[in-house]
């Protein structure tokens, strides 16, 4: 109890006297937490609401998120309805008007990139489709660059005295990112045209970026767990058209992928999906390095 009280006192103090870190950033997913850290440096204090081992579709508005959102100056989320099951509640319950939709304190990454797979028709019989398009935009480095530009501007807008600081960091990051992207594109050349079976359609942007093809998904419809009937169908189609690999994210259940991999005699691999999804995916650079390394390992 004493410890709780002292934590509460400390936190109250921290709120009363804003520390050197000017902006409290609440990132919905690890990739945006990592990007905010790259762009904001020590002028931002970043809290990441979820980890790479958690299915981003199934997050709950737990008390700790409401408490963190209460003091946030900026919420950085994916948008395109990825966080619809919990973020609106966190925004409403935190009593923090700065982070409401439409305020400068609310940043939606998906609003700054062209979305793929925008459904022409939406109906819940199609599974968990997002009306705005596929929201898993971060596995295309060009999207990261676009979002970095916009997020850098947003940070500068919220911390106006330090515009130069954010501009400099954005430039440093984007220079490094451009070089890295060129390297990735060069290294990934053997992947062009490779067809992959995915678990959920959350690698669409990666596949699109590298000119790969999606040979199917383990989920019969977006958001529905794999069923035996669907896996059997997929197996039959894989016997016709072999895929290079079955790829799942760190948070996906490996069983269905392994079942299919064994019968179709193709490798099943796990990609980090986001920062923290593997030991090497410590930041955004590591995320792409490791993802490509794992894909290339099965492409040879």
């Amino acid at each position: 109890m004493k410890r709780l009280l002292s934590i509460a006192q400390l936190a109250l103090l921290a709120a009363a006297f804003p520390a050197a870190a000017a902006l409290n950033v609440f990132a919905c997913t690890p990739e945006w937490g990592a990007l905010a850290t790259e762009l904001g440096g020590d002028r931002v204090s970043v809290y990441t609401a979820t980890t790479a081992l958690q299915d981003p579709h199934r997050i709950e508005a737990r008390p700790s998120l409401i408490a963190r959102a209460r003091s946030a100056d900026l919420v950085v989320c994916t948008g395109a309805e990825l966080e619809i099951g919990w973020l609106p509640l966190v925004q409403a319950q935190s009593g923090n008007p700065k982070i409401r939709v439409g305020q400068p304190g609310y940043f939606e990454a998906a609003g700054h990139v062209p979305l793929l797979e925008r459904p022409a028709r939406i109906d819940r019989s199609m599974g968990d489709v997002h009306p705005g398009g596929n929201p898993h935009v971060h596995l295309d480095p060009h999207n990261i660059a676009r979002i970095a530009l916009a997020l850098g501007e947003r940070l500068a807008k919220l911390d106006p005295g330090e515009t130069a600081y954010y501009s400099r960091r954005a430039k440093i990051f984007l220079d490094r990112w451009r070089e890295a992207t060129a390297r990735w594109e060069r290294d990934a050349a053997p992947l062009k045209g490779a067809s992959l079976v995915v678990y959920h359609r959350n690698l669409t942007y990666l596949i699109h970026w590298l000119g790969m093809r999606e040979a199917g998904s383990l989920e019969p419809k977006p958001g529905l767990p794999p069923t035996t009937a669907h896996l059997s169908e997929l197996l039959a189609s894989l016997r016709q058209n072999r895929a290079r690999a079955i790829v799942r994210s760190a948070y996906n259940d490996p069983r269905a992928a392994e079942w299919l991999a064994e019968r179709a005699a193709i490798p099943s691999i796990q990609v980090p999906f986001t920062v923290g999804g593997s030991d090497k995916a410590k930041d955004l650079f590591g995320l792409f390095d490791d993802t490509l390394a794992r894909l290339l390992a099965v492409a040879q």
Binding site: I7, I66, G95
Partner: peptide, 12 residues
């Protein structure tokens, strides 16, 4: 009327 404290521990 509800108030959420500006603390890391959720207090409402």
């Amino acid at each position: 009327l509800k108030w959420v404290a500006p603390t890391e521990l959720f207090i409402e």
